[in-house]
Nucleic acid binder design. Structure first.
Lengths: 122, 122
DNA sequence: TTATCGTATGAGCACTTGTTCATATGTTTG
DNA sequence: CAAACATATGAACAAGTGCTCATACGATAA
């Protein structure tokens, strides 16, 4: 995201009120890094495959091949997405013999999706 | 998202328990369209520019050029993103003379971002 | 009307993303 | 040990995304 160098352009006509508002906004706006982390988090939820994986994990701890079968997807594709979910600490894994079982790592996951559903369902 | 045609592959060893689990999952999983809408919604939040726009709108109703100045971005870039936010009914607009003022259209917007922040802040 | 300001939008481009395919890693069994 | 199974991962490619630039639209003022 590029930041334009300051210009002499004064947008709209009034200036005083806008300056005050800008000050307030800059105060309350989270820092650059926190904003990016936040966007990154939502990006993870922004894919229907990953959402479907999470919905399966709402019900039970599941191994990769079961996930693949439940979603009708390749083991490879599921594994790639699980990696992303794990990197963002939304799921955790546990090895049991040859299988690896995944489960939600956090109650926030359900809370976030529930909020999203409320909006989608109007 | 492609659905693989059913195969004879029986993953892992046990079968009975998995079949039962799959049935439960399929019952509770939202429909295809709802899942896509949900992913689409989160995709909108998955960009730091749009998140920054929303943070500004948390404070006040703002016109496009003020948004551009507050974020140090081109008017065009901001306008493009506002379009996406509006299409997803996260913001609404109101014309006042030559300016167009944008504001949040929904309390859900704040609730969703607040949930995300909780996760990001550990 | 014409000029100007504020905003919207289409084309083009660099960059990102999700899948597939092939293959590597790790675990158990013979 | 080798073979089989479950999973992870890198490369490659098509599809999608966000920005810039140019330009169009809409409202107001001269």
């Amino acid at each position: 995201m590029k930041i334009r160098e300051t210009e002499e352009l004064e947008c709209c006509e009034s200036e005083e009120v806008h300056e005050e508002r800008l000050r307030i906004v800059r105060e309350k706006m989270p820092g650059e890094e926190e904003l990016c982390d936040l966007a990154e988090l939502f990006k993870v939820f922004g894919d229907s495959t990953r959402i479907r994986i999470l919905f399966v994990l709402f019900e039970a701890e599941v191994c990769v091949c079961d996930l693949a079968q439940a979603l009708g997807m390749t083991q490879s594709a599921v594994s790639h997405q699980l990696r992303i979910l794990k990197q963002n600490r939304l799921v955790k894994s546990r090895r049991e013999g040859k299988s690896v079982f995944y489960s939600l790592s956090d109650g926030h996951v359900y809370a976030i999706i529930a909020q999203g559903l409320e909006h989608v369902e109007e």
